[in-house]
Amino acid sequence: MDRLNILGLIFVLVFFGLMIAASVVLRQREGRKLREIPAFVRLRRAIGLAVEAGSRLHISLGRGQLLSSQSAIGYVGLSILDRIARSTSISDRPPVATSGEGSLGILSQDTLQDAAKYLGVESDPMRGRITGLTPYSYAAGTLSFIQEEDIGANLLIGSFGNEVALITDAAERKVGMTLGGTDNLTGQAVLFAAAQEPLIGEETYAGGAYLGAGPMHIASLYAQDILRWVLIGLIVIGAILKLFSVL
């Protein structure tokens, strides 16, 4: 059996064990303190303001295919959509979701319908829209959607390339808050420049934990932090060994 595959499986199992251990420890301890990420502080404020002002929240889920590694960021976006749909229950105008991929569009409709059922309100399936199926048609469809609707804040959480700049530009013109996070390096660079509140690297994946999606989201953050330090240690040791020509 390939040694690399075994190492990979061990890594995943260690991650799994750390998540379980962290969730047990968190259950025993009172008060779960997370590092403050300004983007999520502003997002919580924006949710409150949108509910008060009667404006919509728009969540753009990107165009990540469900059969690739991009699916993970899509699931994070759906998690955030679910939390927001439930926390804006008293709003006259429930949140809307746009996506650039068929399966993500269906899942967003399902998530919104699920939240509506939980709150005991009617749900319009058209609140989960597919605005285009290629990168630029998706961007064009989403920006015209932002221009037409009365949107208080835009959350761009998903897989985006450089076309996300067109969406953030439309959002900026509407003077709403724009928060953006993606798994794509080019998209991250663009969002750093164009979004009001960019999320860098793994910050995007922490969205569920910061919006109260459940204790396992917080446990996974602790597991990530531990493994990140392990990886940093291994990289530093590797670099030192390489410096002294041991490797």
Binding site: V12, F15, F16, M19, S69, A72, I73, Y75, V76, D183, L185, Q188, I200, G201, E202, T204, Y205, A206, S220, L221, A223, Q224, L227, R228, L231
Partner: peptide, 14 residues
């Protein structure tokens, strides 16, 4: 950044 993203992907999958 990619290391952080990879850890996030594993966490979301798990």
């Amino acid at each position: 950044i990619l290391l952080g993203v990879s850890l996030g992907i594993i966490a979301a999958g798990l």
